[in-house]
Design a protein around this nucleic acid. Structure first.
Length: 277
DNA sequence: TTAAATTCCTGTAAGC
DNA sequence: TGCTTACAGGAATTTA
């Protein structure tokens, strides 16, 4: 599942290869992947544009394109199984290939997505937000300006389970099921606790755990637990260090008791009943 | 306003 | 072996 560290890895890997390149042409194979504007217009508007910068916001990859005024963005969201890769000319085509951008050096940017939960967008940020194609996002959890006090302000008035709020992109951007479970475990916080029942101290632990975990996962190039691959098709390494995700029923690495599996906010949730209170 | 449920989608694995 | 079924989940949408 591409979450913040996985998306950061893809964006950082692609950046030096894409900045300064021009999109020669774009072919949309599966039109519903393009959510804005109309797929034909999307392809036409991309042709001839130069990529000025590659950034990440939450789970979105943002490609800044040349032009006057507010930057036009090519936005890529990988959903669950999306892959955004840069390949040399002549590379054999995989299945589930939904969009191809040919660059001026002949290489191809390919969007592949078996489950098609991902999407491509093109437009200025204000245009995409106004069209409700790009949601407003909460703060970046790896931004040093995002403090424990900020997280507490966002949690203390809400009754929803703390994990449900960690998954809410408006509360904090970029966290998905893997890092929500892992950060709760590291902070020794029960994921089903109503957020407003957490002390400042507990929220402080959660904030610290989340930031440290995400930085570690970025260093390890993300978690390849399902089909995630980086921009070169390689696996990440963070899955080797996950302590609860995918380990339901197995012994807690801290106390040895079997890890509990529950359904929370529509997601499989794994935690330790003894270590997380 | 908030929270929970529903929907999309297909590869994978379990069960018979 | 081959078929059916359940399950995985990000986020938009719907319902309460």
């Amino acid at each position: 599942m591409p979450e913040l560290p996985e998306v950061e890895t893809v964006a950082a890997d692609l950046r030096p290869h894409l900045v300064g390149r021009t999109v020669a042409c774009c072919e949309v194979r599966f039109p519903t992947i393009v959510r804005h504007p109309e797929p034909e217009r999307f392809a036409a508007l991309l042709a001839g544009r130069r990529i000025e910068a590659v950034a990440r916001r939450g789970k979105y990859i943002l490609h800044h394109l040349d032009g006057p005024g507010e930057p036009t963005l090519l936005v890529v969201h990988l959903g669950m199984t999306g892959q955004w890769r840069c390949v040399p000319p002549g590379t054999p085509e995989p299945d589930h290939l939904h969009a191809v951008l040919v660059l001026d050096d002949g290489r191809q940017l390919r969007y592949r997505d078996p489950r098609r939960f991902g999407r491509l967008l093109l437009g200025t940020e204000s245009e995409l937000v106004a069209a409700r194609k790009l949601p407003r996002l909460g703060p970046e959890p790896v931004d040093p300006a995002f403090t424990a006090a900020d997280l507490y302000r966002r949690l203390h008035a809400r009754r929803a389970p703390v994990k449900a709020l960690l998954l809410d992109q408006l509360v904090v951007a970029g966290v998905g099921n893997i890092y929500a479970d892992e950060s709760c475990f590291r902070a020794r916080v029960r994921p089903d606790r109503p957020a407003n029942s957490l002390s400042r101290r507990a929220v402080g632990r959660l904030h610290e755990a989340l930031a440290a975990l995400l930085e570690e996962a970025i260093t390890n190039r993300g978690s390849s637990v399902d089909s995630y691959r980086d921009a070169w098709g390689e696996l990440g390494q963070e899955q080797e260090f996950l302590q609860v995700y995918g380990r339901g029923g197995e012994p807690c690495l801290r106390c040895g008791r079997p890890l509990a599996v529950v359904r929370l906010a529509g997601r499989t949730t794994v935690y330790c009943r003894r270590c997380q209170r």
